[in-house]
Lab assay of single mutants.
Amino acid sequence: MLDDRARMEAAKKEKVEQILAEFQLQEEDLKKVMRRMQKEMDRGLRLETHEEASVKMLPTYVRSTPEGSEVGDFLSLDLGGTNFRVMLVKVGEGEEGQWSVKTKHQMYSIPEDAMTGTAEMLFDYISECISDFLDKHQMKHKKLPLGFTFSFPVRHEDIDKGILLNWTKGFKASGAEGNNVVGLLRDAIKRRGDFEMDVVAMVNDTVATMISCYYEDHQCEVGMIVGTGCNACYMEEMQNVELVEGDEGRMCVNTEWGAFGDSGELDEFLLEYDRLVDESSANPGQQLYEKLIGGKYMGELVRLVLLRLVDENLLFHGEASEQLRTRGAFETRFVSQVESDTGDRKQIYNILSTLGLRPSTTDCDIVRRACESVSTRAAHMCSAGLAGVINRMRESRSEDVMRITVGVDGSVYKLHPSFKERFHASVRRLTPSCEITFIESEEGSGRGAALVSAVACKKACMLGQ
């Protein structure tokens, strides 16, 4: 009897593995994704193909990295998701002549009506938060230079001027797309009239992360975010950046690689679950690469896999709870928690219980395998993109072996128990001629924006502006 049951459990697990095998990517698959990513990057950089390229390769006008001589107080704003952060950054000489960066910050959550109302409502709310922060720190009387981390696709015309191309991540505030974001912020500050600010720089969160990590390690020339969304930036040779005049030196390019796949480059790798996630998203047909990796989508992918296993009578005796059938019910943090389970399955059992399920031991094991399959594919897909960037940098610099540091931020990278190990191992397999160091950014977005502002202020002083 026991043997029969054991055989049935083994057969069930084997069927589960057959279904989950769809998520496995072979090294040849990853090399294919990497080569296609490089081709799209090239198209994004070139003037004649930029418009139709899915990977936009947006110039950021960040050319210099901090040298350690900029000092002063800077205000930093960070808008990239449902939370908005205001930070005071003091850049100065530390002990023994070292450079020191001290920060104080406060988080504000953005109400739904500000995210989806008008641009005026959104930026009025942001300036209200700045006003509140300055009151708390008794700094209303000071006109501070301000660095703005704005983590949406922007076409820069200068370091302090950028046109919002399109909202992502659930934002829909009308009247912002096609307009200068810094102008919208300046107008809102003017409307309030109770404080003055000098907006000197606007950067993407990947750029802010790279600059913040450069402060720790001067070989950091790539910034990457794996959180709600997924994106990367890197220092490109100016001669390859056709959208900006000049051939000397390097400029940081914001790849906006989340949109890779929007022209069909990933079609052969998309599964039924991916198509369902895409169809029910706020932007169907867009940001397809990001939807395979980002935390906004990972939990939902797992939920759809679990429903398939229920329908195949391989999980929960073929019956799903009402909660499990509800879109968004299986949160991405559950994926991390399930994979963090120590082996007694308590954590998995508790999560499934909150979803109205009474799982068996085998159910718990199957749910864990589903989570591992989805998150491992995410790590491997992400590795193909980064390997594409790094191999490109090595080739354009004609280096036999390139040493490089990548600064990384984002909740999936930082909080998932195995993502970074799987990701690092896969990147290294795909970049055999590179020695890569990964560092995690601390308060990256805010500190990085302030350091970019410090560079901009120093330049302005040198130019006598």
Results as ranks from 00 to 15, higher is better:
residue 126 I to M: 07
residue 244 V to C: 10
residue 122 L to W: 12
residue 187 D to T: 13
residue 134 L to T: 08
residue 88 L to M: 05
residue 181 V to A: 05
residue 190 K to W: 10
residue 447 R to I: 07
residue 179 N to L: 14
residue 383 S to R: 00
residue 199 V to T: 12
residue 278 D to E: 11
residue 176 A to S: 01
residue 317 H to E: 15
residue 404 I to K: 05
residue 444 G to L: 14
residue 328 G to L: 10
residue 173 A to Y: 03
residue 162 G to T: 13
residue 84 F to A: 08
residue 213 C to Y: 07
residue 279 E to R: 13
residue 154 V to K: 09
residue 300 E to C: 10
residue 215 Y to S: 00
residue 296 K to T: 12
residue 362 T to V: 05
residue 376 T to N: 08
residue 154 V to S: 13
residue 60 T to N: 01
residue 189 I to F: 06
residue 216 E to L: 03
residue 389 V to G: 01
residue 68 G to R: 07
residue 93 E to M: 12
residue 303 R to E: 02
residue 158 D to V: 14
residue 53 A to K: 09
residue 389 V to D: 00
residue 185 L to Q: 01
residue 345 R to L: 09
residue 313 N to H: 04
residue 385 G to N: 12
residue 184 L to N: 14
residue 246 G to E: 03
residue 196 E to W: 08
residue 23 F to L: 13
residue 121 M to Y: 01
residue 201 A to R: 01
residue 41 M to R: 02
residue 399 E to R: 10
residue 382 C to F: 05
residue 82 T to K: 14
residue 61 Y to N: 04
residue 86 V to R: 00
residue 257 W to P: 03
residue 78 D to C: 09
residue 463 L to N: 15
residue 99 W to L: 11
residue 26 Q to W: 12
residue 270 L to S: 05
residue 206 T to K: 00
residue 233 C to G: 01
residue 197 M to E: 01
residue 351 I to H: 02
residue 125 Y to L: 08
residue 73 D to S: 02
residue 460 A to Q: 08
residue 436 I to E: 04
residue 384 A to Y: 08
residue 352 L to T: 02
residue 70 E to G: 09
residue 270 L to T: 06
residue 324 L to F: 12
residue 100 S to D: 07
residue 83 N to C: 10
residue 418 S to N: 14
residue 207 V to S: 02
residue 373 S to L: 07
residue 96 E to R: 09
residue 427 V to Q: 05
residue 338 V to L: 01
residue 390 I to Q: 00
residue 299 G to E: 02
residue 149 T to C: 14
residue 312 E to K: 15
residue 414 K to G: 08
residue 33 V to D: 00
residue 149 T to Y: 13
residue 449 A to F: 10
residue 256 E to G: 09
residue 278 D to N: 15
residue 235 M to W: 00
residue 339 E to G: 00
residue 204 N to M: 07
residue 323 Q to G: 12
residue 174 S to H: 03
residue 380 H to G: 11
residue 199 V to S: 08
residue 223 G to Q: 00
residue 165 L to A: 11
residue 375 S to E: 09
residue 84 F to E: 00
residue 329 A to P: 03
residue 119 A to L: 12
residue 260 F to G: 02
residue 236 E to I: 00
residue 180 N to R: 10
residue 343 G to H: 04
residue 381 M to E: 00
residue 79 L to P: 03
residue 302 V to I: 03
residue 455 V to S: 13
residue 314 L to V: 09
residue 7 R to D: 08
residue 164 L to E: 12
residue 171 F to L: 13
residue 166 N to R: 12
residue 112 E to T: 07
residue 220 C to G: 01
residue 101 V to A: 03
residue 257 W to T: 02
residue 87 M to D: 02
residue 219 Q to K: 15
residue 339 E to Y: 00
residue 56 K to R: 10
residue 231 N to D: 13
residue 308 R to W: 01
residue 383 S to P: 00
residue 185 L to W: 01
residue 440 E to N: 12
residue 381 M to I: 12
residue 89 V to R: 01
residue 61 Y to M: 13
residue 370 A to V: 05
residue 150 F to D: 14
residue 106 Q to E: 14
residue 221 E to G: 02
residue 6 A to P: 13
residue 179 N to E: 05
residue 87 M to K: 05
residue 340 S to A: 02
residue 331 E to V: 12
residue 156 H to N: 14
residue 320 A to D: 12
residue 249 G to D: 01
residue 71 V to S: 02
residue 236 E to W: 00
residue 377 R to K: 01
residue 454 A to G: 10
residue 18 Q to G: 12
residue 345 R to N: 05
residue 200 V to C: 04
residue 181 V to D: 11
residue 263 S to A: 09
residue 465 Q to W: 02
residue 53 A to V: 04
residue 36 R to A: 02
residue 345 R to V: 09
residue 370 A to C: 09
residue 312 E to G: 11
residue 87 M to S: 05
residue 391 N to G: 06
residue 163 I to Y: 09
residue 433 S to R: 14
residue 406 V to T: 04
residue 264 G to Y: 13
residue 191 R to N: 08
residue 279 E to S: 15
residue 173 A to L: 05
residue 366 I to P: 01
residue 340 S to R: 04
residue 60 T to P: 00
residue 317 H to S: 15
residue 239 Q to F: 04
residue 313 N to M: 06
residue 379 A to W: 06
residue 413 Y to V: 11
residue 13 K to W: 10
residue 338 V to S: 00
residue 67 E to I: 04
residue 406 V to I: 09
residue 115 M to Q: 08
residue 428 R to Q: 11
residue 23 F to R: 07
residue 109 S to I: 10
residue 60 T to E: 00
residue 340 S to C: 04
residue 343 G to Y: 01
residue 216 E to V: 00
residue 411 S to E: 14
residue 68 G to P: 14
residue 422 R to G: 12
residue 412 V to D: 08
residue 131 S to T: 07
residue 371 C to L: 01
residue 184 L to W: 04
residue 75 L to M: 02
residue 211 I to Q: 05
residue 87 M to A: 06
residue 206 T to S: 05
residue 49 T to P: 06
residue 438 F to W: 08
residue 5 R to S: 15
residue 178 G to V: 13
residue 382 C to Q: 03
residue 237 E to K: 05
residue 33 V to K: 01
residue 354 T to E: 15
residue 308 R to H: 06
residue 223 G to L: 01
residue 85 R to A: 11
residue 227 G to M: 01
residue 293 I to Y: 05
residue 379 A to T: 07
residue 389 V to L: 12
residue 230 C to G: 02
residue 203 V to D: 00
residue 29 D to E: 08
residue 422 R to W: 14
residue 462 M to S: 14
residue 106 Q to V: 11
residue 31 K to A: 12
residue 169 K to C: 15
residue 113 D to A: 07
residue 52 E to V: 14
residue 401 V to S: 10
residue 250 R to C: 11
residue 457 C to R: 12
residue 25 L to V: 10
residue 226 V to M: 06
residue 65 T to L: 09
residue 311 D to F: 07
residue 127 S to Y: 06
residue 368 R to M: 07
residue 52 E to G: 05
residue 14 E to D: 12
residue 455 V to P: 01
residue 124 D to N: 11
residue 225 I to P: 00
residue 430 L to Y: 08
residue 204 N to L: 04
residue 430 L to A: 05
residue 387 A to Q: 01
residue 462 M to C: 07
residue 26 Q to M: 15
residue 217 D to R: 05
residue 145 P to Q: 01
residue 357 L to Q: 02
residue 260 F to Q: 00
residue 174 S to F: 03
residue 374 V to Y: 02
residue 142 K to S: 08
residue 221 E to Q: 11
residue 2 L to M: 02
residue 361 T to E: 09
residue 158 D to G: 10
residue 410 G to Q: 08
residue 23 F to T: 13
residue 308 R to M: 03
residue 325 R to P: 06
residue 73 D to Q: 04
residue 118 T to R: 11
residue 315 L to F: 07
residue 265 E to D: 09
residue 141 H to A: 05
residue 381 M to D: 00
residue 21 A to V: 07
residue 225 I to H: 05
residue 8 M to C: 15
residue 281 S to H: 15
residue 183 G to L: 06
residue 366 I to A: 04
residue 265 E to V: 06
residue 185 L to C: 06
residue 57 M to N: 02
residue 186 R to C: 01
residue 383 S to M: 04
residue 25 L to I: 15
residue 166 N to L: 12
residue 348 I to N: 02
residue 169 K to L: 14
residue 445 S to R: 12
residue 45 L to I: 10
residue 191 R to E: 06
residue 137 H to F: 09
residue 201 A to L: 00
residue 434 C to G: 05
residue 318 G to C: 07
residue 47 L to G: 14
residue 51 E to L: 10
residue 121 M to T: 08
residue 41 M to D: 00
residue 13 K to G: 12
residue 3 D to E: 09
residue 279 E to Y: 13
residue 21 A to P: 09
residue 93 E to H: 11
residue 68 G to T: 02
residue 401 V to L: 10
residue 338 V to H: 00
residue 191 R to L: 13
residue 57 M to I: 03
residue 436 I to M: 11
residue 320 A to I: 15
residue 137 H to R: 05
residue 90 K to A: 01
residue 259 A to C: 07
residue 74 F to Y: 02
residue 34 M to I: 07
residue 258 G to W: 07
residue 398 S to A: 03
residue 461 C to L: 14
residue 330 F to M: 04
residue 175 G to F: 07
residue 123 F to Y: 15
residue 204 N to R: 09
residue 225 I to K: 01
residue 243 L to V: 00
residue 414 K to C: 14
residue 385 G to T: 05
residue 379 A to S: 08
residue 167 W to L: 14
residue 348 I to G: 03
residue 65 T to N: 10
residue 352 L to V: 03
residue 227 G to Q: 11
residue 427 V to T: 08
residue 410 G to L: 12
residue 237 E to H: 02
residue 462 M to T: 05
residue 166 N to H: 12
residue 165 L to P: 13
residue 139 M to E: 08
residue 13 K to F: 14
residue 218 H to W: 08
residue 431 T to V: 12
residue 220 C to F: 01
residue 211 I to W: 00
residue 209 T to I: 06
residue 312 E to S: 12
residue 238 M to W: 01
residue 168 T to W: 13
residue 327 R to T: 14
residue 201 A to W: 01
residue 163 I to A: 11
residue 211 I to G: 00
residue 151 S to Y: 05
residue 76 S to N: 04
residue 358 R to D: 05
residue 419 F to M: 08
residue 293 I to F: 14
residue 288 L to K: 15
residue 437 T to N: 04
residue 73 D to L: 01
residue 428 R to L: 14
residue 279 E to G: 14
residue 432 P to S: 13
residue 348 I to S: 03
residue 229 G to D: 15
